[in-house]
């Protein structure tokens, strides 16, 4: 606690200023993630010719885009000191709403908006339970993880919606994920660094009480953060269903853990208040690139967990080391 108060980064509202302009690039929170990504990419480019194919890079872009969108929403929540375990379930819910509308003949643009609406509704339920009812985030989203998934299963009767709209499928399986990912990262990174709402998100993660006492409605900010997380999870789910041309209740199963892992690998502090959207995006790209590399080396999918577990630990140790060095200064 004392260490947290003495830490100049915790007391100055702008960690962007400190991290980008005052310290060397290697001291950036995102530096370990960036180095790791560059090492993996360099290794794969040098030693695996299949990695260099355009098709492979396109696949990485698509998958990283989908996971990245989700991880950005999760990062916002984690920056406030909360956690959203329901992102995978919300993704499935939104995908099924959008898929259902599409297969009912609605134009895909409208159907996607309906799906995003479902994502927002899921996020709103989380936010409302957490702020109006003051329930702990981990419990609330654990309950909604079970609830949304079950709700989607029951409503759809566990029957997949397929085929979806061809026009949307073409977009979602080509440039859709990566373009929306870049858009989300640019917007959210700017909001977090430059916009009042974004600064408040980080501030709440540092010291919620201080923010509340300075006259800001922390609950309103937190509600919007969960709303955004739901929206982005919904977008990711709709893209997943579009890319695979089928919307089912069990898509994005376990993605909440992948999203949290991406956020942690990207150097966002799990207790909130420190980290960036860029980091979360990098984390998502690292996770997907690593999975793809393991796949190219012919490793079975079951073994990915070992490596991902190790990388999460590595990221956590990097964070620990950084904090240790900071406390010495």
């Amino acid at each position: 606690m004392a260490e947290k108060l003495l830490d100049p980064r915790m007391t100055t509202p702008s960690n962007l200023k400190n991290s980008v302009f005052q310290n060397s690039p290697l001291r950036l929170r995102e530096a370990p993630a960036l180095v790791l990504l560059l090492v993996i990419i360099a290794w794969m480019f040098l030693f695996k010719s299949t990695f260099r194919s355009l098709e492979n890079i396109g696949q990485i872009g698509q998958q990283a885009g989908i996971l990245g969108i989700m991880a950005c929403g999760e990062a916002l929540v984690i920056l406030t000191g909360g956690v959203d375990l329901s992102v995978g379930a919300i993704a499935a819910m939104a995908a099924c709403v959008a898929g259902g509308r599409m297969s009912a003949g609605m134009p895909w643009q409208l159907a996607v908006i309906c799906g995003l609406g479902a994502g927002l509704a899921g996020g709103w339920i989380n936010g409302a339970l957490i702020t109006y009812r003051k329930l702990p985030p981990i419990l609330t989203t654990l309950a909604t993880l079970l609830g949304f998934r079950a709700f989607t299963n029951i409503i759809t009767g566990a029957v997949p919606y397929t085929p979806l709209s061809a026009g949307f499928g073409k977009i979602a399986s080509s440039y859709g994920p990566i373009v929306s990912f870049v858009l989300v990262v640019v917007v959210l990174a700017t909001v977090l660094a430059r916009v009042r709402f974004g600064r408040r998100i980080v501030a709440i993660g540092c010291n919620e009480q201080a923010v509340r006492l300075s006259g800001i409605s922390t609950d309103a900010v937190i509600r919007r953060v969960y709303l955004l997380s739901g929206l982005l999870a919904g977008a990711a789910g709709i893209l997943i269903s579009g890319a695979s041309n089928s919307a089912q209740w069990n898509i994005a199963d376990g993605y909440e853990l992948n999203a949290i892992a991406a956020v942690v690998i990207g150097g966002v502090r799990l207790s909130g208040g420190e980290g960036s959207i860029i980091g979360a995006a990098l984390g998502a790209i690292i996770l997907v690139t690593m999975q793809k590399s393991l796949f190219l080396y012919g490793r079975p999918q079951e073994q990915y967990g070992l490596v991902i577990g190790a990388v999460i630990l590595l990221a956590a140790f990097a964070e620990q080391f950084r904090r240790f060095r900071e406390s010495k200064n």
Partner: peptide, 16 residues
């Protein structure tokens, strides 16, 4: 390490 992170890593690794 935060408990959720350490056990998340074990969650992946033990299943693998």
């Amino acid at each position: 390490l935060p408990p959720i992170i350490a056990t998340l890593a074990m969650f992946s690794a033990a299943r693998a």
